[in-house]
Design a protein around this nucleic acid. Structure first.
Lengths: 333, 333
DNA sequence: TTGTAGGCGTTATCAT
DNA sequence: ATGATAACGCCTACAA
């Protein structure tokens, strides 16, 4: 199976390359009968137009670059899927580049992408903290998940503050009043923002955190377990725990279970991330907050398309998260 | 930041495009002084050669397609990372395409990739069962994880039988003799192969499975819990459990913990996949089998490069898995 | 050592 | 309705 060129098709159909081109591209000024001949010739040779050559002329490669900083991270993948999906039906293909959090490698990839004449770039960070802007580039760029530090760039982020509010709101609606918050590394803006949202929402009902403080620590099950043990010792009357991630929530559930404290009847638990392998399989299945990352990716692709079509945007757009109700929370009866 | 062409560089340097080209590409027949001028001009204009145009001439696009059937699956990602890693980002860029297990979409992507003149293709399946060959293509193809049904294709797979053997071997070395096997959907060749390896290895020591049968079911924690309960009822003397996945292993550990059966002192548990969020965070941390998928991806890239350089290969290559020892297994004392 | 010319596969603009 | 012809950006004989 070798590669037929338009010339081959034209020759086989007995027309000029120009006519063949027009016939194949559905231009009107070509006799139906001629078009038919060309199309058949193309099929016969299984002709496939060389997009590179087309791009040379149209000044559009029909490709975009997806620059991620950690592929294995569970956050980049859904975004990446959403973006790939939104472009998919179009005629744009996606170059995947993983910089592994290394600035050098990122520069390297950037160079390669630009020389491949990508029409645009999506940059997806590993964590929702602000990252360095790539600066001015000959193609439009959209930052997803991790916002750029340059307000002239367009950044798309999830609403972590809103997520914290939403979690607490749900627990309050379940009749809980003594709510604790166990979360991860305080160096992450995600941890800070979720905590802030939680505290704000509590305040609206005249409440404070059970135990008085946010339990910052690490994004791990082990920390969830450790913090829960300390919490139970210090504040045994707690009736709900908002965990900053599903991993932490698993640790929380584990200790609760061990202590024979019933979930949700005595203590309700809510997680964050909706990482299904963790949230869907726990005992009981975990109520949690979904970041809508796939949607974020889809929007990123749309914004990028718009920018490529000459309608650029700037600033930070924040997207809402949503509550996934499972069985680890329920109204107090 | 617009786009300088080689002509612009040549003009600025006061030479012809041919000379500029030679100067930039390190050809010897150009005076050092001239080269210097050209290079400076290129830098000044931040010139970046148009890879598409180069590809038109060299008949090589410097791109490969990565056709995956499920991105969210935890198996494609490491392979994809390995492959992306192995292609030096300067030489080769990777087009990512997710067919979502849909044959139509796959055809669609394939068409697009070929018209983009990719130099090669890596096809990575979602599960290790045989998949349909893409047939004869104008570029080399390597199948990774899921082998092609056509022996003329090159397929790279992990050794699931060997994995089963390895797991049992480890348990036997720990002094266990009453070993049960709880695994997932029997419709997966992975489940069958791992079970076969396990049974074979047991037989070498004159042993059979504790309880007599493999416990096939589903790839979930819930099944791991359910099966373990039934197992303990029917075969309480079991001293080790080989779980077909880390998810299942988590369920196993959960019930063992609930029943106050000590791990590993009374029952050892080994998982499969080394999915770190599950295996690394369990109580105790889980001994498991790592599929070396990143390595598989790296090899896939190498084989593809070789094929692109005119050294094709065919058949199925099977790659060894490896034991990750954590704390859920230990010698019986 | 440098420049000229032809061509890679397409499309668009003219003639015919 | 069809066909030459000139681009697109680059590279590589070949000529000067």
């Amino acid at each position: 199976m070798s590669r037929a060129t338009l010339r081959d098709v034209a020759k086989l159909a007995g027309v000029s390359v120009a006519t063949a081109s027009k016939a194949l591209n559905g231009q009107p000024q070509v006799r139906a009968q001629t078009r038919e001949r060309v199309v058949r010739a193309a099929e016969q040779l299984s002709f496939s137009p060389n997009t590179l050559a087309q791009g040379l002329i149209t000044q559009r490669s029909g490709t975009v670059g997806l620059l991620t900083s950690d592929l294995e991270g569970r956050f980049s993948i859904p975004i990446l899927m959403g973006a790939e999906d939104a472009f998919g039906s179009d005629q744009t293909s996606v170059f995947l580049c993983d910089a592994r959090g290394d600035a050098i490698r990122e520069k390297h990839h950037l160079r390669a992408l630009l020389s491949r004449r990508v029409d645009g770039l999506i940059v997806v960070g590993a964590r929702p903290d602000t990252r360095l802007s790539l600066g001015e580039l000959p193609v439009p760029v959209v930052y997803a998940y991790a916002p750029s530090d340059d307000p002239a760039d367009l950044s798309l982020v999830t609403d972590n503050v809103g997520g914290g509010r939403l979690a607490i709101d749900h627990l309050i609606r379940c009749g809980r009043r003594r709510i604790a918050h166990i979360t991860g590394d305080p160096g992450y803006s995600a941890a800070q923002d979720r905590a802030r949202g939680a505290v704000e929402r509590l305040a609206e009902d005249g409440l404070g955190l059970a135990g008085g403080e946010v339990w910052f620590g690490m994004w791990s099950e082990a920390w969830g377990r450790g913090a829960t043990r300390m919490l139970l010792e210090r504040t045994p009357e707690v009736d709900a725990i908002f965990a900053g991630s599903d991993e932490i929530a698993r640790g929380v559930l584990d200790v609760l279970h061990e202590e024979r404290i019933e979930v949700p009847s005595r203590v309700a638990v809510i997680g964050f991330d909706n990482w299904s392998v963790l949230a869907g399989n726990s005992r009981p299945p975990l109520t949690t907050i979904d970041l809508n990352l796939e949607h974020l990716g889809r929007i990123a692709a749309q914004r990028l398309s718009a920018a490529m079509d000459g309608e650029p945007a700037a600033g930070v757009e924040t997207f809402p998260v949503r509550l996934i109700t499972r069985e680890s929370t329920a109204p107090l009866r």
